[in-house]
């Protein structure tokens, strides 16, 4: 009797599992967790019927990515709103409160994604590429489903102009930033994004170290990462400890005399791919997200657009400042880091 019961349970579980993988999904939730071998075909057929996908992203090369996706999946158009995480957060919250469900797929940094998570605005999903990603790069819920997956990273470290800083003076770690030769040569942007390097310094060296940087006459510039990068390229700012690896990488590719080095900890500015819980075009949203996470999408992001990948090892220690924090804890820390950055740059 016991053996019979075991056999029945086994058969039911096998059948259930098979149904979970092969029964045709009908709702967004079913589609999001569907893992059958025909997932791509089902998504593409549905996406063609839907005609387009509305994508809110912070990715700078979104046009090229959209074009690539459209050529791979003819009949599906990508309509994009590109902005930073704060603006995307503000827009999605406003639209949701007004019951305007415009966005299908989202790709932005964790600050905004955490707000969406807290407000239940994201659809848990799976993808056949998820197994290739380390656990740390997935915001998991349960049953193998995730709310977002890190599809690209850039890192904050020291960017410098080779004509403005001699090789001997190039810092190799945070302590080297206190070298007398660097006094008056350093500049930073004034945004939270850059202020996260203060968080890394606090973690690695403590607050007294950060406060000693004030002696170095660090200048504050009211510019975002790319603006600061231009000032490094022209030599107006010989060195910054809050430079993005991607920005410097693009300038290096053009032949500019600049370079980037990681310090004790390199702050990872990670972007995650997510699906809106109220996506009006679910097939297309999932198809686009699958594409970003696929080896083909990753190759494009890392090789063509010089982003870092959570899958690769670059030989330096990465630090994800938002990991393990609630939204309010992360916001409080960011405020503290920015305040400290403003204090050490006050003249």
């Amino acid at each position: 009797m016991k053996a019979l019961l075991t056999a029945v349970i086994f058969a039911v579980s096998i059948l259930g599992s098979a149904w979970g993988q092969t029964a045709k999904p009908t709702t967004l939730a079913d589609l999001a967790k569907y893992t059958g071998p025909d997932r791509e075909r089902i998504l593409y057929d549905g996406a063609r019927r839907e005609g387009k996908v509305v994508w809110y992203t912070s990715l700078v090369p979104y046009k090229e990515i959209g074009k690539f996706f459209e050529s791979k999946y003819p009949g599906v158009t990508v309509e994009t709103y590109r902005a930073n995480a704060v603006e995307i957060a503000g827009r999605v919250l406003t639209e949701t409160r007004s019951k305007r469900y415009v966005v299908d797929a989202i790709e932005t940094t964790p600050g905004a994604l955490m707000i969406f998570r807290d407000n239940q605005l994201l659809m848990p999903y799976t993808s056949r590429h998820l197994a290739e990603y380390p656990d740390g790069s997935k915001e998991g819920v349960s049953g193998g489903l995730v709310l977002w997956t890190t599809d690209r990273e850039s890192y904050i470290g020291v960017g410098y102009n080779k004509n403005g800083v001699s090789t001997a003076d190039v810092p190799k770690n945070f302590d080297d930033l206190l070298k007398p030769a660097l006094k008056g040569k350093m500049g930073v942007g004034d945004a939270e994004t850059e202020a996260r390097i203060v968080g890394a310094m606090l973690k690695a060296k403590g607050e007294s170290f950060v406060r000693r940087l004030k002696e170095q006459d660090v200048r504050l510039y009211g510019v975002t990462g790319p603006g600061l990068n231009e000032l490094i390229v022209t030599g107006e700012v010989p060195l910054s400890f809050a430079a993005f690896s991607t920005n410097i990488g693009h300038s290096v590719a053009k032949g500019a005399p600049v370079a980037w080095v990681a310090m004790d900890l390199a702050v990872a500015n990670a972007g995650g791919a997510a699906i809106s819980a109220r996506a009006q075009r679910p097939h297309a949203a999932l198809l686009l997200t699958d594409f970003l996470l696929s080896p083909e999408g990753q190759k494009m992001l890392t090789e063509k657009f010089r982003y870092g990948s959570p899958v690769k090892d670059y030989g330096f220690v990465r630090w994800y400042p938002e990991k393990g924090l609630t939204t309010s804890e992360y916001t409080e820390r960011q405020d503290r880091w920015l305040k400290l950055l403003l204090e050490i740059t006050r003249r």
């Binding site: 995480a85 704060v86 957060a89 600050g111 992360y330």
Partner: peptide
């Protein structure tokens, strides 16, 4: 800075 401070404007 007040507006841009944090992820929630």
């Amino acid at each position: 800075r007040q507006i841009k401070s944090g992820f929630f404007p």
